[in-house]
Design a protein around this nucleic acid. Sequence first.
DNA 1: GTAAGATTGGATTGTCAAATCCATTGCGAG
DNA 2: CTCGCAATGGATTTGACAATCCAATCTTAC
Lengths: 217, 217
Amino acid sequence: MGERMSSHVARPDAPSTRKGRATRDRIVAAAADLMYRHGVAGTSTPAVRDAAGVSSSQIYHYFADKDDLTRAVIAFQSDAILSYQAPALARLDSLAALRAWRDVVVDAARPGNGAGGCPLGSLSSELSDDQPWARAALASSFAAWSGALRAGLAAMVDNGTLRPGADPDRLALALLAAVQGGLLLGQAQRSTDALEAALDTVIERISGHAAECPSQG
Amino acid sequence: MGERMSSHVARPDAPSTRKGRATRDRIVAAAADLMYRHGVAGTSTPAVRDAAGVSSSQIYHYFADKDDLTRAVIAFQSDAILSYQAPALARLDSLAALRAWRDVVVDAARPGNGAGGCPLGSLSSELSDDQPWARAALASSFAAWSGALRAGLAAMVDNGTLRPGADPDRLALALLAAVQGGLLLGQAQRSTDALEAALDTVIERISGHAAECPSQG
DNA sequence: GTAAGATTGGATTGTCAAATCCATTGCGAG
DNA sequence: CTCGCAATGGATTTGACAATCCAATCTTAC
């Protein structure tokens, strides 16, 4: 699947030696951390060099330019988020499971009181308008994320938890938007209130689609 | 001690002459536009100088430094958004009015297919983590925004449209999160689907709090 | 009208980031 | 072992940006 539209010479995604792979990974991890905390524009390659404990030439040996490194960071964060939530997303077949996923998301944001926001959301906000290649990558990550939610909701329709009237696509988008909006507001408000309010409200609406007559609380 | 923490001389927020005021406004408007499209870090003071048709010294005559200019841009965008929605927010006393506000928000995003996102949201995502002064200003803008929504929902409880069980605070936060999350996703997906799904889902939940027995659509 | 101060022009300085270069060291297949 | 290529170190180049400076020109209060 990974073609590349880059205007620069292709670097192998996986260096040929063990050591090279480790170095490349260290660079990506350091860059991901710095870009998460200070943004892409706020992260200089010298800063990445120091944080990763490598020399300038390593970065440009493994990546064509800063954009290429940023591309790798987007992939890194997409993997991190999706694999972190994978257990909760895989079991999404009941309202209780949906609330368990909600707790996974909220608990991840609680330690910093909302600081940082969503790694993918921050990248998207900074890059989507100006960098078409980044927009495409982020859009497909979001699609994968909402797709997993959609699959869970569809399963709940299939197994009779939700009535057929429920629209899994629409509700999955609403859930993901609640996460992103809640985290963005939490960054400014330094709390998880918005995240909880948004997620809980959407989940209450989903509960309204439950098969048995709703006695909503 | 106890003087100001800034290392620079304070600039008057309003220049003393008519011409000076116009120049200052032109600089802020140009900076707001550029920062909206390319981010704060992606906007150089030379770019602002050219877009506003002024010379370098003007910028530093009216603003202590780039942070000070950014501060003015945040205030500018807060005013712009709140005054743009003011008419719809002031009349928020029925479910129909709530849906009308929804349309105002969605229609504003439709032309660009979600490009750009929310001016306040973008600023918050970029600045909140690193710039405490920006975080505080943005938090209070968001608070004013959700406060207006809260007031509308409270009015709907008072006038009997919604049952007393509805929590205006929580629902207002959920609405604002839906806007922010929907716009952020729309930036990457280049559509208003997420915004509409998120807003409609939250509004459906609010409709579930309607006084008469819900026959939700 | 005329000074005092506000406003403007544009050259300039210091700093830092992105990217390149070349010389060296280390790894791994045969 | 040893040759070829991968990997590394660090100096260097080039360019852009934030911020300053000083001289010149408008505004306005009197």
